[in-house]
Simulated assay, not measured.
Amino acid sequence: MKCIRIYKLIMISFLMVWSTISIAQKKKNRAIKEKTNTINSYPFSDPKNEGNWILNKEISDEFEGTEIDTTKWFVEGQNGDYYIWKGRAPSQFAPHNVIVEDGVLKLRTQWEPDYPFAQESYADGSNNDTYGVFEGEPLPITTAGVVGKKRFLNGYMEVKSKQGNAAITGAFWAIGYEQELDVYELMGNPKIDGSIKANSYLATAHDWSPPAVRPTKVFNHVENLPFRTADDFHVYGAEWGKDFLKLFIDGKMVHHFTQDQVGTDWVLNNPMEIWLDSEIFKWLGLPHKEELPVDFEIDYMRVWQKPTSNLLAPAFYGFEGPILFEENPRSLKMVPEDSEPNDYQKFWSIDEASAQYLRIVHGDYNSGVNS
């Protein structure tokens, strides 16, 4: 009888453990299913989809699985390759800081004294800082960055994200030919009172047309927020049209730029690629060793676009170029102001025979105030 009682107790204990595991697994599966279903959702600012948005699944990412999808993203520093730059010195992008877990992309910033920093400096305007060093003293901080492999022209781009609680930025931005749009630059815990606060938002557009002399900023918007950006996740979006830009935070429009208002400084005319990264802005203070590591967390990044009945329209964007060949890899040193034709981008050209009679003396955009 004693053996039977022991057996029953063992069976009851087993059933209780199994039941607990089963319930936990069901909850996890339900959460995964609910998150997966959101891939067909609409912009947070347009939950009823009155704008008739269609999700661009080739660009969007829910960050499921255990690693970054390298068919969609270029990871800065992976296999020793860097696109355009190695990060904003004194910090450097490190590929192992790109982490996907629990359905979230985490771009980590950490203190790594043993990291083999590049023995070079990064020229940033009047600054010429060295990676891993600040004012002659070691500052071994690594960060992370990823770049979308496909560009898009106009649409609604959105992330749900939370900043790391340190003097390190989290940035959601995009570049295209001669242009840059910083949908946001946020900082969880700046050490110096400046252009970005723990509870503020900065959006900026830059003109990189040659000679691309700094300052390149053409318009920006600062928004004071009723929350700290490092305390919780919030939804940030931008609707980019051919002659306007609307900025959204948690579904509410906070600013609206138009081409007519901006005038000849309107530069958002060509397809752009998404960037997500973290950087040190030393003019806002340096992150302290004690507050690292921290993660810039992105729950999702989505891009919606609208259908068009004019099938010829995409073929005519950027009359001055570039015409993109995305099946070919980008040159890793190709910055936005580059106008040299290569396997990735081509420009309108005149053959040698025709050049006796024709030449382009001035280029302009097919859209914008001068079109």
Rank of each mutant, 00 (worst) to 15 (best):
D260R: 11
L292E: 07
K246Q: 06
E34R: 06
L153E: 06
D299C: 03
M11D: 04
N269H: 15
G77Q: 02
P211E: 15
V159E: 02
V262K: 08
D243I: 04
L311M: 09
P43W: 01
Y300V: 01
G155V: 00
K57A: 13
S45A: 15
S91Y: 03
T20I: 12
N269R: 06
S349P: 00
V294T: 12
H288S: 11
G321M: 05
D250K: 02
R359F: 06
I249G: 02
K191I: 02
L202Y: 15
N37M: 12
H234C: 01
W18L: 13
R108S: 05
V147I: 15
N79F: 07
T229W: 03
G51Y: 03
M301L: 15
Q179G: 10
E327H: 08
I54G: 03
A355G: 11
F152Y: 14
G194H: 05
V17G: 01
I12A: 13
Q261P: 00
Q92W: 03
L332R: 13
T66C: 07
I323M: 11
L312N: 13
G77S: 02
Y42H: 14
G321W: 09
V235M: 01
G148C: 08
M272D: 02
W53L: 05
S126M: 08
L105E: 01
S278G: 14
R302N: 09
T109M: 10
R214M: 08
P307L: 11
E337P: 00
V159H: 02
P140Y: 11
I6T: 08
L247N: 04
Y82N: 05
E290C: 03
E58K: 14
V303E: 01
L9M: 09
S121P: 00
L55P: 03
P90I: 05
H221F: 15
G368E: 07
P190S: 15
H96Q: 15
H234M: 01
I99H: 06
N128P: 07
Y82L: 06
I350H: 07
E101F: 04
Q78T: 00
E340V: 10
R228D: 08
N220Q: 14
Y201R: 05
D232A: 14
F63D: 02
I23M: 09
F117R: 07
S371E: 09
R330M: 14
V17H: 11
E58M: 09
W18Q: 11
A205R: 04
A315D: 11
G285N: 13
Y344D: 03
F14M: 10
W240N: 05
F219P: 00
N154P: 00
D243R: 05
N269G: 11
V75G: 10
V17W: 12
P314E: 07
L324E: 07
T142N: 03
K282E: 12
P210W: 06
E76P: 02
E50A: 03
I249D: 03
P210E: 13
V104P: 00
N56H: 04
Y83K: 10
L15C: 12
H362I: 06
N127R: 14
E180H: 09
F316A: 12
L225C: 04
M253I: 01
K160M: 12
T70H: 10
W304T: 02
I54L: 14
G251H: 06
M272W: 01
